[in-house]
Nucleic acid binder design. Structure first.
Lengths: 346, 346
DNA sequence: CTTAGCACTTGAACCTTATGAGTGCTAAAA
DNA sequence: TTTTAGCACTCATAAGGTTCAAGTGCTAAG
């Protein structure tokens, strides 16, 4: 699809106006606003062309124009001019990330809140990829008669726990050497490494101490997998109520339901790949989100891997503003995390 | 306020009809439905009396009647006949609570979901009072260069953790004897006990091992207090969207905001006292809830203390149905928890 | 004390109409 | 060939009007 300069100018203005006001854009308003001097009739002719290309559409036969999915797509791919981020917002980000955090996840969850506040949409944040996170320690704490709490800690400050019944035929004391073995042999290794060794040499070693270690090692594997699971944080759930005003209650409910099922959401957001990706309306492979847009971006923390942040908003989201903000935020977050690792890392 | 038998019969019917249908109740419908044979005109006369007593009101000058806050109050205090709980629902409760849980809190959070499903309103659940929960263990796990994760476990399966920097002048190794001391001296005691001793003999004992233990003991106290904090669970957040249909978006937002601030909610729900308490509309000391009703009930787990469950719904909640359900649920939950403690407790 | 009868009120649903923002098309101007 | 003035046409929205049914209060008779 090739557009003339003027057509692009018009499309850009339509998207800008419509995402700002939510009202279909008419030829007269465009004629007044555009830097070129043409009459509204000329604009109308151009708009007819844009419409026949499927980039804009009418809401009814005599209404102004609204961008189509294809139009937003073209805008984002070719026309967008990210808004410069206001110094105010930069300051807000920096001061919100400025305090002392005790865990990576605190920074990440705080980030979801900042991002949702800045954008007025809904924000998702994921910590740096877990391939890089390492086992810091494993402990047992007796709870009651035959119940024990298994606790696993990773070097990014994540703690996972699970209570379990000590299998018949073993006492809690007998498990102590196994715990020591795990700490001696596995601490400092990445979680995937540890998971791998759980299927190879570890069972052999453990069987020196306990006759049937399967039950216990299953628990350990369980907690380990829980720690290795994709975690992520959501900020601005409530903003949904603003930006999907004309939706019915049922679709609101399904959206909220989706926001509560981490697995589905993690699937939708996906893995770090492109620096920034914009998916609009039905480009998102989930029917519940077919009236929304999703911006995902990665951030790099050097050798600690990549993480992701994402923004969910209406298809008529203010792309230029949000993309500017997300881009600025990636940078600040990466800085903060580097700081954190430098301070606490090995 | 004294009402005749007939007036009470009419008020009861108005509340029942209105809470079921949400439509103002007229004299004709009542005349047909009531077991006595009087004309609608007679009913109208009685309704006028009830209205002048402030128990019912009109939505406009020629509408049917709707109960007032005062009317609901009278109904709940004097007229209510709790619905018998269907065997179906009992079965649902029992099977939902039937699986094997690893923590008290899993049972409690599951309870919030069951209750909200059963009632179609929003449910809150709190574990048995924490005065009774005991310290099971305290562990440290080194994280990075100078960072350590402190982990505290209580006998009801609650795990709290906090990362901290080892104070200058102490090494992580030096803390080991202190951790041992805490485990030797404090495990098995209730959290309030432990907190008390943290201000008396413990600092003295610890100072044998470490020269300036204040920093570390502050951390320990921190985690301890976190574990002793009121925890609670919410189920059926989404149901709000159903039962407050005629509210505007702003009040919805404030309600959701309230649901996200545990402290305020804990205040509103309060401490275990009466077996069951019904607060209607502005009887709740919070403006956001002035159009809602809150039913709170306690449950007893013998020597393990009392917990609470609560239901939030519209003022025109189906009181008789919900009160029946809540009452049945208290019993089942208490049974389940006793089971749990018997199985795992000391 | 009860009730039939009746005038009156009101929200809801349904039209009708006016308004105005916007369109497409035509024919003339550039 | 491109632009533009002019104009008929379309449609959403808001405002006003009508009808309908449900409900009320009141009066006077049973």
């Amino acid at each position: 699809m090739t557009l003339t300069e003027r057509q692009m100018m018009i499309l850009r203005a339509i998207v800008r106006d419509y995402t700002n006001s939510g009202v279909p854009v008419g030829s007269k308003a465009l004629a007044q606003q555009l830097p070129i001097h043409v009459s509204s009739a000329t604009i109308r002719n151009e708009m007819a062309t844009l419409e026949s290309s499927g980039l804009i559409k009418k809401t009814h036969s005599s209404s102004g124009r609204v961008p189509s999915i294809k139009g937003y797509r073209f805008y984002v791919d070719h026309l967008i001019q990210p808004d410069p981020v206001r110094q105010n917002d930069i300051n807000l980000i920096q001061s919100s990330l400025g305090s002392d955090f005790h865990k990576i996840d605190d920074i990440i969850s705080q980030s979801a809140n900042i991002l949702s506040n800045l954008t007025s949409y809904t924000a998702f944040t994921l910590p740096p990829e877990l391939q890089e996170s390492r086992l810091s320690g494993f402990r047992l704490v007796p709870l009651g008669k035959r119940q024990v709490m298994a606790i696993l800690v990773t070097d990014d400050g994540n703690v996972q726990n699970r209570a379990f019944d000590v299998p018949e035929g073993i006492t809690a004391d007998q498990l102590e050497p196994v715990v020591r073995l795990i700490n001696d042999q596995l601490v400092g290794h990445t979680l995937p490494d540890v998971l791998a060794r759980l299927n190879t040499d570890i069972p052999v070693e453990v069987s020196h101490y306990v006759t049937s270690p399967e039950g216990f090692l299953a628990i350990f594997g369980d907690v380990l997998r829980k720690a290795a699971q994709e975690r992520f944080y959501i900020g601005g759930r409530l903003n949904v109520l603003n930006y999907s005003d004309d939706q019915d209650v049922d679709s609101l409910k399904s959206l909220y339901q989706l926001l509560d099922t981490n697995d589905d959401l993690a699937d939708i957001i996906g893995k770090p790949s492109n620096q920034m990706q914009v998916r609009i309306g039905n480009e998102i492979t989930n029917d519940v989100l077919k009236n929304y847009s999703l911006i995902t971006a990665t951030y790099d923390v050097d050798q600690h891997g990549q993480g992701m942040i994402a923004i969910l908003g209406p298809t008529r989201m203010q792309y230029s503003r949000v993309i500017g903000l997300v881009d600025a935020f990636r940078e600040e977050l990466a800085k903060k995390l580097l700081d954190y690792y430098q301070h606490y890392g090995e």
